[in-house]
């Protein structure tokens, strides 16, 4: 069996890898490898087995105080229980959407929820402009107000095919089909090789993969 460890540390929010593997595109070994990554991220500032917002920011930007609208939205979506931290199960289930084998439908839905800043069930023009401004701020790219307005309006009108002033899920799906690069960042090829990144853990895994 190759079991070097008789017991696995059971930290707060830890979930059975076999259950997580059954619910996601990951194998049991991959979930175990993700636990190694999770442990690293969740102990970078506060060693409590939970990823806090600052730890997430630190991992993404090497800066715990880096404010970024999109990273905040990702954190909020990963934090399914909305209790201000990401637990292991939430981490694995959310990352599952970014797996190359996850369904395009799930990726499109996740991106929609990400951009629906105020969670109204629609992406509104004001939200789109807010996101463009946030991106410009982050990239230090300078565009005139007129150019920003033109980009936002043109995009919005193209996506809002029924012309009701907001982008719904179906309009978003059609827009992504037209511009597939929009969900490119919803796929992390790296997740297919996650066990290669953390081989030390795989050697000590308790559960053998069924597939």
């Amino acid at each position: 069996m190759g079991c070097y460890h008789s017991k696995k540390p059971k930290t707060q929010g830890y979930e059975d890898p076999t259950v997580l593997a059954a619910e996601t595109p990951f194998t049991v070994s991959e979930v175990e490898a993700l636990y190694e990554l999770f442990k690293k991220l969740s102990s970078s500032i506060i060693n409590d087995g939970l990823i806090h917002r600052e730890e997430f920011q630190l991992a993404l930007f090497r800066n715990r105080n880096m404010k970024n609208l999109f990273a905040d939205r990702i954190f909020d979506l990963f934090d399914v229980k909305r209790n201000g931290v990401i637990e292991f199960g939430e981490f694995v289930r959310s990352l599952g959407i970014f797996h190359p084998n996850a369904s395009i439908k799930d990726k499109i839905t996740f991106a929609f929820r990400l951009y629906d800043l105020r969670q109204t069930g629609f992406i509104e023009q004001e939200e789109l402009k807010e996101m463009v401004l946030a991106l410009l701020h982050e990239s230090e790219l300078t565009l005139s107000d007129d150019v920003i307005e033109t980009i936002v309006e043109k995009t919005f009108n193209e996506a809002d095919t029924n012309g009701d002033g907001k982008i719904d899920q179906e309009e978003w799906r059609e827009f992504v089909m037209k511009y597939p690069s929009l969900i490119k960042n919803m796929t992390l090829p790296y997740l297919k090789d996650i066990t290669m990144a953390f081989p030390s853990f795989v050697a000590s895994t308790e559960v053998e993969d069924s597939d």
């Binding site: 991220l41 999109f70 990273a71 789109l128 946030a134 991106l135 043109k154 995009t155 992390l188 996650i194």
Partner: peptide, 26 residues
């Protein structure tokens, strides 16, 4: 592509905050 010719969603999808690959960097 120039930012001016991109649609708004293409532009925002370039955010570093959406690039989770950095989570896996050692």
């Amino acid at each position: 592509a120039s930012p001016v010719t991109m649609n708004a969603f293409e532009l925002i999808s370039k955010s570093r905050g959406l690039d989770l690959a950095t989570l896996f960097e050692k």
